[in-house]
């Protein structure tokens, strides 16, 4: 899973670079518009190490932001799973807020909180929180009748058990949503850094953009792609192991 993620990214990345180089060649563009291979390599030599640590910095925010949003999404999703008025209220709020482009709130967050770690974390969390919440709400508010029936009719049902049944039965769906949300959290962190921050790969990309340096941006994109592929691959492998451990890999 991990290696498949990486080579898939490499394929896409190098296909993209090849496309750019083809356009450069056909149209005869300078390195200012589309950098040539020597310039890309030279830039990579200068910046790859720094960008790698920048991406790791961004990844820290991503992981933490994702963990926070997973915890929040499960808390709210579990609270909102009932068809009671509070459940409906939570769902209504969640559906409405998720329809709003959270990135648009970023400037307000930065004005209020300044730049630094917290605003980046907040934006990363917010961007991956709502899609997660909708999935968790969907899973948690859909009864697994053929399992739950016994517990309900015998009076043995507890909320923890209900949550466990629904989570277990939708484990692969939740795992996909959680690993997919890594990309969202990363995108959120990068957007936050891009708008206003003093660290992270988004911040470095912004500086490169100031200098119209596409070579730097291509190196940064490579680092982002590799790191997020590894992270997502690890998440997927972990979720596969958990699913295997719970023995749902076949027949269910």
């Amino acid at each position: 899973m991990l290696f498949r993620r990486i080579y898939q990214f490499l394929l896409v990345y190098f296909a993209g670079i090849s496309g750019l180089l083809l356009v450069k060649l056909l149209v005869g563009l300078s390195d200012y518009v589309i950098p040539g291979i020597p310039l890309i390599f030279a830039t990579a030599g200068e910046t790859a190490k720094g960008y790698f640590f920048d991406v790791l910095n961004t990844l820290q925010v991503t992981v933490l932001g994702q963990v926070i949003s997973i915890i929040l999404a499960f808390t709210v999703g579990i609270a909102g799973r009932k068809s009671s008025w509070i459940g409906s209220f939570i769902k209504m709020i969640a559906y409405n807020i998720q329809a709003y482009p959270i990135v648009a709130l970023a400037p307000i967050i930065f004005i209020l909180l300044g730049d630094g770690f917290i605003p980046r974390l907040l934006i990363a969390s917010m961007i991956c929180y709502f899609p997660l919440l909708l999935s968790v709400l969907g899973v948690m508010s859909s009864p697994v009748k053929d399992i739950e029936h016994f517990y309900i009719i015998t009076g043995k049902m507890r909320w923890q058990l209900e949550v466990k049944i629904r989570a277990f039965e939708n484990l692969s769906k939740l795992a996909t949503v959680i690993s997919g949300s890594a990309t969202l959290a990363m995108a959120g962190a990068i957007v936050a850094e891009f708008i206003a921050a003093d660290a992270g790969i988004g911040y470095s990309i912004r500086i490169a953009l100031y200098q119209s340096d596409l070579a730097k941006i291509l190196v940064a994109l490579f680092m982002i792609g590799i790191v997020i592929s590894i992270y997502q691959g690890l998440l997927e492998s972990a979720s596969e192991r958990i699913q295997k451990a719970w023995a749902i890999s076949s027949g269910n």
């Binding site: 029936h149 009719i153 277990f168």
Partner: peptide
């Protein structure tokens, strides 16, 4: 009054025996 029906399932996270022990 209890109602049981065909196609009911036991949770998949434990063995059938462990489930019986629990309930």
């Amino acid at each position: 009054v209890l109602y049981s029906y065909n196609l009911e399932r036991l949770p998949g996270w434990s063995s059938a025996g462990a489930h019986l022990d629990k309930v």
